[in-house]
Design a protein around this nucleic acid. Structure first.
Lengths: 259, 259
DNA sequence: GTATAAAAATGACGTTTAGTCAAAAGTGAA
DNA sequence: TTCACTTTTGACTAAACGTCATTTTTATAC
């Protein structure tokens, strides 16, 4: 067994004992709690070995439990991945909520959401991929219904949060749009940001991307889409590079974690 | 062994014999040819069982060769996937070349490229995912250098082809852009289209997408980006839904294959 | 045609891993 | 303490990747 596996397990046991001392729990609560702790452990495992080298065996070794007990929590490896996906979407939602609090124009706040999404991808590249993985047919087949319902719920929450940024733009008059079109516009924004982040993460070395130089690609792409929507002020009339920097400061706590 | 495995192998053997009769080949050519035939076989296997159920064992069973011989061609499963990725990007490039021949405005021709990419995703959903998979760190580590070079080459070819559509727009005056910005704009278009297709394929069931209704999502998203670039005529001044239909007719041969 | 050396093909084997299940251990009520 | 029920355990099976000693084929020289 790798020494880091032992280290993970020891830390895990200390954590469990600490939590137990602080608040004695009922049986059901303990099981619920243990699941969260196993997820934390799996999360660390992802950082140690990378998403596609995570195995149930390693999770078993890193935890003080046996294989059977782990399978009581997660009916398959894919079920574990979906649980990790849900877990990481929590962080994503947290960042997006923080974007909501950015003070500026509605377009700037929407830009802050794209920043948040980008930041999420940088902070948790493996889990960003994991969420995509959760959507594939293979994983959908093998994960439990209950787990998939959690995933759908998390998706819906984030979608509604994103919608609210466009609603704000409509309300303050900077964005001219039928309310019925919000869904389509929201999807377009998501798709653009999703594609940009995914490609930057996974294809940075190829010609089409490496030739781009140092300019901020996310900002550039988002500006294209916002301008296409006619969201005032247009990028030719306003310095959104400055906004981006301000947004970066707004997220300073998280940006720090990148190092 | 599944009966379809036997069927695949029998068909493969008939094909080999037929090809051999038509044109006797040198040793090196035979090996080269066999690799192509193995790729065809793997491609069919993907259709039969889905990308993540393709195993080297199944490819061995479906071919008349032994495991060792298969591994002479592909140094790992990941190497096979990269080969499949390169293979499928050939189809993608073919479709994009056809888009180049669409007669219309330069913006309409660029729209045709997005159509081509979308069509590619519909025709080969599994291989579309496979190409993405090829970019992940895991696959990059396990595939052979030679194979990865092929992949980069294919990427570069497609990127340059895409660039040419924007160059046309600049030359006919409908698109105002510095030549130096083509790379950035090209990437933005790719990212948007990539994200849109990927989400439509893998997340169609979730709330944020299922609520969108029947409207053409790719066209909508591409129009946003083109409008953001200021590519004339803007979507408010021109009926691109009509263009989309014309493009669909232009690709009628391929569209037929969807059924 | 035969001998010999090089190249290619073979498939049994070692290893890793997902997932199962009968047996053991634990828990709480009577 | 007993007994019924729940939870945990880890040995086991099957699938799959990749290796390599052995066998077969092919090319060349005589």
């Amino acid at each position: 067994m790798g020494c880091w596996l032992k280290r993970l397990r020891d830390k895990y046991q200390r954590d469990c004992q600490a939590v137990d001392k602080l608040c004695p729990r009922s049986k059901a609560e303990k099981i619920q709690q243990r699941e969260q702790e196993l997820l934390q452990l799996a999360h660390q495992l992802v950082h140690e070995v990378g998403l596609n080298n995570v195995t149930m065996e390693k999770l078993v070794s890193a935890s003080p439990y046996s294989k059977g007990t782990i399978y009581n929590h997660f009916c398959s490896k894919e079920d574990l991945f979906v649980a990790l996906g849900v877990h990481s979407m929590g962080l994503c939602a947290e960042l997006m909520h923080k974007a909501h609090q950015f003070s500026g124009s509605s377009r700037e706040r929407a830009l802050a959401v794209h920043f948040a999404y980008h930041l999420y991808g940088l902070l948790e590249p493996a889990l960003f991929m994991c969420v995509l993985n959760c959507k594939t047919a293979n994983v959908q087949q093998k994960a439990s219904k209950a787990r998939l319902a959690q995933l759908d719920k998390a998706d819906e929450d984030i979608a509604q949060l994103c919608d609210s940024f466009f609603t704000q733009g409509i309300e303050d008059g900077s964005l001219t749009l039928e309310k019925s079109q919000i869904a389509a516009v929201s999807f377009a924004n998501w798709a653009c940001s999703f594609g940009t982040n995914l490609l930057l993460q996974n294809a940075a070395s190829i010609y089409a991307i490496s030739r781009l130089g140092a300019a901020n690609k996310v900002l550039f792409n988002v500006n294209l889409v916002f301008d296409g929507m006619g969201w005032q002020p247009l990028s030719k009339d306003y310095d959104y590079k400055m906004s981006w920097q301000k947004i970066e400061q707004h997220f300073a706590d998280y940006v720090e974690m990148l190092n």
